[in-house]
Design a binder for these strands. Structure first.
Lengths: 166, 166
DNA sequence: TATATTGGCTATGAAAATCATAGCTACAAG
DNA sequence: CTTGTAGCTATGATTTTCATAGCCAATATA
């Protein structure tokens, strides 16, 4: 079974999803889009992917309707990548993945990479799916992210390193 | 960046998670374990993977502590695979992936592959994360799955086909 | 005028992962 | 004493991914 002849025949929704998002690069790209990195090079720098990987995955994501490519400059032609409604709808999956990663893939002394404030109540949101402060379900639009200083500098460092040797 | 030298250095919990579960086979294997397929050949048949893929992924999952290998027969030695607590904790991710797949990867005339009954209230659970009948958060232990006839026969068919040509 | 620089990629050959197919081991059942 | 079952491993071909390099069109800088 090759990547592109994945069973569209199965009724299983998990398998259907995995046919599109079942690879590391794709998920990391979606993470970046949710973090508002819309430019090709930002995405490349933060995921660590090769340009071909990023280009190919973005093309697939566009073809599958999760991402749209917007021209933001005509001459020279320049593009940005944005989540569509279908792409935005993927947010709960990333939130669950984040929660699992924070809970099970870290030693306790490492803090959280990102803390969310739940704009609906103004207090910390926790790991979800319900707000740990007010108990309401977390929606993407009601979340404000704050990166930890360590994670912030990790990301800054990757961007600097990327710019340095291109 | 090779698969096994994925940045354990990053603070991002999504990237950490993806280093373990960031591939199609792994997720499908986890799906099978959640569906109570504990035997190697069942998993192989239902995922459609080659035996090496399944063996390799199960080994990784065991090494990462999501899965444990239990001997259920001494002579001849036979094994079953079961989720650990860490593996069980992955359930919300699969639930979210299922919800997204049902909502965005299917035409409306195809029904749901699985319907859950929320044992806490005895009514349909819907796609989550909250029970559509009673509003409580869905927990794995309070869910009873019922496969649609079509999905059931899809799975039966795969098992029969697998047994037929081995 | 020359020469970087920027952004979004594409091209190329080498390396690694995955695939299809086959087979092995160890025992049990008929 | 052959057939079947379960859980894999071995082999060589195919496909994907990687590292490295470079292109193109325009704008900014010298």
């Amino acid at each position: 079974m090759k990547r592109n002849e994945t069973p569209t025949t199965t009724l299983c929704p998990v398998a259907r999803s995995e046919a599109v998002v079942g690879d590391r690069w794709t998920v990391l790209i979606l993470r970046e889009l949710f973090m508002r990195s819309h430019r090709f090079e930002q995405i490349q720098a933060q995921t660590g992917g090769t340009p071909q990987m990023i280009a190919a995955r973005l093309k697939t994501l566009e073809g599958e309707g999760l991402v749209e490519r917007r021209r933001y400059s005509n001459r020279p032609p320049r593009y940005e990548y944005h989540l569509t409604e279908k792409g935005e709808a993927f947010h709960p999956v990333l939130l669950a993945l984040r929660a699992w990663g924070e809970a099970w893939m870290k030693s306790p002394e490492e803090g959280r990479a990102v803390e969310y404030t739940h704009l609906a109540c103004g207090k910390p949101a926790g790991l979800g799916p319900l707000c740990e402060s007010c108990g309401e379900p977390l929606k993407r639009k009601e979340l404000m992210a704050e990166l930890s200083p360590a994670y912030e500098s990790e990301r800054d460092g990757r961007w600097e390193a990327f710019k340095a040797n291109r």
